[in-house]
Design a binder for these strands. Sequence first.
DNA 1: CGGCGTTGAGCAAACGTTTGCGCAAGCAGA
DNA 2: TCTGCTTGCGCAAACGTTTGCTCAACGCCG
Lengths: 350, 350
Amino acid sequence: MATKRHGAPVTLRDVARAVGVDVSTVSRVLQNKGRVADDTRKRILETAERLGYQGNPVARALKTARSSTILMVVPQIENPIFASAIIAAEIEARRAGYALLVAYDQGGMGSEIIEDISRHSMIEGVIIASFDEDDPLRQTLASTNRPHVIINRVLAGDPDCIAMDTRTAARIGVEHLVRLGHRRIGHLAGRLGRFNGEARRQGWADAMAAAGLPPAAELVAEAGYYPDRVPDAVDRLLAAGVTAIHAATLLTGAAAIARLHVRGVRVPDEVSVVTMHDDLLARVAYPAITTVELPTEEMGRAAVRRLVGLVDAARGRRKAEGDPEGTGGGVLLLPPGQLVERDSTAAPPA
Amino acid sequence: MATKRHGAPVTLRDVARAVGVDVSTVSRVLQNKGRVADDTRKRILETAERLGYQGNPVARALKTARSSTILMVVPQIENPIFASAIIAAEIEARRAGYALLVAYDQGGMGSEIIEDISRHSMIEGVIIASFDEDDPLRQTLASTNRPHVIINRVLAGDPDCIAMDTRTAARIGVEHLVRLGHRRIGHLAGRLGRFNGEARRQGWADAMAAAGLPPAAELVAEAGYYPDRVPDAVDRLLAAGVTAIHAATLLTGAAAIARLHVRGVRVPDEVSVVTMHDDLLARVAYPAITTVELPTEEMGRAAVRRLVGLVDAARGRRKAEGDPEGTGGGVLLLPPGQLVERDSTAAPPA
DNA sequence: CGGCGTTGAGCAAACGTTTGCGCAAGCAGA
DNA sequence: TCTGCTTGCGCAAACGTTTGCTCAACGCCG
């Protein structure tokens, strides 16, 4: 009996030898392929269990050319939207039998990152969050025809984008303000001209139009996604005489409230604030912030499902299965959740 | 000339054939091992470049038994401490030539998760954040003797823990309050009895003792890590007559401020609030929160460095190199950063 | 009783590397 | 000219699987 070095992992050969069959038979049993006598099967399963056979994922990957690993590239920014998307994506990936690699893009380096990681790890597909319209990564991805899906943004020409319908989310928030009686409603914009900034502004405009209110230019103040420029933008909205502010993001919404406090403006008595993405921050702010729930987790899950579908398709499997999981191509725009009414919104002052 | 199926990846054999040498020679050139004639080397390099040779990480991993992949397990909680630790860890890992898998533990399932992922991916080491003192994962890890490091917590008996010195961070915050003239300083505790909750309470007690102030029991109110129980705890501290509150976490600090607002207590005029972890939330709260910086990113980076060291050591490399990178064993307690003074702290009312 | 289909299992090739070994060529010293 | 060392490179085994092919044994039907 050939003694193995202690600690060395148990291989198919070890099991095969112990049972007295060929490795191929063991392999077939372990993956339920091919016909094996019930008796043999039982002995193999028992022995594999007894020896603690684990299987070597690398060897399997080499033979099958499948690594069951996907990569998610996110901007380095600590955006809570991505944080929860990653969490949900990982859990969904694990459920689907995949492992999730993450990589943080420090700005437009997506291509290099993917290439870099591909050097040590075989990745079957990529989920990309850091993606400007002009990102060179797009070319790379298209030319290398590696399965990929883009999240948090709809990109013209790419069928595999999964984003949240922030336009509708914005509309819901603003409609709530309208319902409360507000007429001069300002929009604290993110980055206008960018996909997400623009969608939110549109949603604000939609609600305004539906209420017969003019979406005047002075009612829109751009602040970006960081708190820095918020005070200035809020001041401009106050100068425009708003009684309510719709903030594009939770973070800028909170910053807006802080600015209103500084300016001595009471929230919500004098000015209401509403925003989207129902995160913890909305609950610890004072007053607690009224928000519209965003399907951040569903975005992560949907991205994984779509990507797994693409990977499978690329391997020729379930080619014409009528798309039973609804993962079929096409841009997916996830509807927002509920309006969560808290203490930052009220009727305008008489 | 054997035409390859278009799209099939370029292998060593392809390059070797094109140059007219053996695959082994190509391999040696590509990894700079062994002696090869300069001329041959140049031709091989050129051809590899021209054909776009990428190398197959799986095949390499099979042969070398190295996957250059590490796993980081974090609790599913969207704790900003972990978010930034992950980001920093990933970037450090990439720099070290590793890829980072993440997995989110939904509560005590660490062992299952690791086993699950090990089925598809070969992982060389694990960084674990979700780790209670009694976690069964600990046994698993010890018995399987897989290289691992534990972060955000010091575990008796495990030499590879990397945590932040939150005790000192707490002391620094409280010292600041003392310096401002506060004498009745409450501690809004996390979870007492747990590593992190206890360290912070100790730091508070340290500063109190140093100032000759009695750390009375009624000055400590436990609230956990979530905002839910904060209002009640704050009320108790107010009843105890505090003029300042040291909150264990940024989130509960923000929630405490909100509660003080609700109670009609002005911050910082009547009650000051200080906490730790200088995150965006501290800047968008009103008033902006005075915090002590926490080395969350360094924790992530240090964990990766240590783990890489362990992995290398386990493979017998640089066994006795005098530990040039300072990654040597032993618990690492990272010192906190600066006190960032903002608007939530001031002298106590006369 | 011969042909044939089915079942169970072994043989061996392949996946793309890495690496120990061997060997030919070249060259220096004796 | 022979020995012996170095340099450059090919040969082939291995890493642990998966899978197509082969084949013996067996039972069934005509």
